[in-house]
Write a protein that binds this DNA or RNA. Structure first.
Length: 268
DNA sequence: CGGTTATGGTCAT
DNA sequence: TGACCCTAACCGC
């Protein structure tokens, strides 16, 4: 259940654990036909673009393209444990085993197909060469709301439902504000804050967005335990008091996803 | 044990 | 806008 920070972290871990190693590749579940084509090959690279992961091998130009979707997980386990449940792809060098479950996508792509996937993506806040001005241009010329734009992977690649809600809260922006009425400076702040938060997320493996002065210890409140593991201002805190102004956090559904915001701190 | 929910995305209508 | 993809965790009975 990943936003881009998880994919970048995973790419880093895969390189760390497997790069230069000969690996066994299989599809215990049987639904990744390409698994056999890289079996016994040497893993060469693992790279994240937004929420997409590409794994490269020494003997072929093709790369394994993975998108976890909303359910997918890739778990790194010591040794070679028995397969439990539905494992789409298993990769192992004997020392470590990577099990992929429930991905939206897991397929071998040739270089043009890889390029096509990447071409569809906007700048990725976690990639050093990302062009922030591309993001700003898209935002300030769009009639869509900023809440919609931050979930559009062609506008910004890797951001998901938690970072969207949290960044807009931190900057005091009403999620319903159209991109074109934000202004470049405001759009640049959104980019900068997203980069900052996602870098923390990549480093820690969890989403923390709460500033030091609002942390549980500083405010004498209980630490929050949610699936994403971190401390946040508004995500899934509907009906609970805002940590800053006390107003009840609101939620609504936008294009099938839950949006959370504080009506006090994020006034139009 | 069944129903619900989830950090996502595509496709059809 | 809704159906669907796919898996696992959680909740209430």
């Amino acid at each position: 259940m990943p936003e881009g920070h998880v994919i970048h972290r995973l790419a880093h871990d895969l390189v760390d654990l497997f790069a230069g190693h000969r690996v066994a590749s299989s599809s215990p579940q049987g639904r990744f036909a390409g698994a056999g084509l890289v079996d016994g090959d040497v893993l060469e690279s693992a790279e994240a673009w937004g929420k997409h992961l590409f794994v490269g091998f020494a003997s072929t130009e093709a790369q394994v393209h993975i998108h976890l979707g909303i359910y997918g997980t890739m778990r790194l386990l010591p040794g070679q444990p028995a397969v439990v449940g539905q494992v789409r792809w298993r990769l192992s060098d004997g020392e470590t085993t990577a099990d992929l479950r429930g991905p939206n996508t897991c397929a071998l792509l040739d270089p043009p197909e890889v390029a096509a996937v990447i071409d569809r993506l906007g700048p990725d806040p976690l990639r050093p060469e990302a062009d922030a001005q591309k993001f700003v241009d898209r935002v300030v010329s769009s009639r869509s709301t900023i809440a919609t734009l931050l979930m559009d992977q062609a506008v910004i690649a890797g951001t998901g439902n938690i970072y969207r809600a949290e960044v807009l809260f931190r900057l005091g922006i009403d999620p319903r504000t159209p991109g074109r009425s934000l202004g470049r400076e405001r759009a640049e702040q959104i980019w900068t804050d997203t980069v900052e938060l996602m870098e923390v997320g990549r480093a820690r493996g969890r989403i923390d967005t709460v500033r030091p002065e609002h942390e549980p210890e500083a405010m004498g409140r209980e630490p929050r335990q949610d699936d994403h593991g971190g401390e946040v201002y508004v995500y899934r805190r509907q009906n609970q008091p805002c940590l800053i102004c006390g107003a009840p956090i609101l939620t609504t559904t936008v294009a099938g996803r839950n949006l959370f915001w504080c009506p006090g701190c994020q006034a139009a």
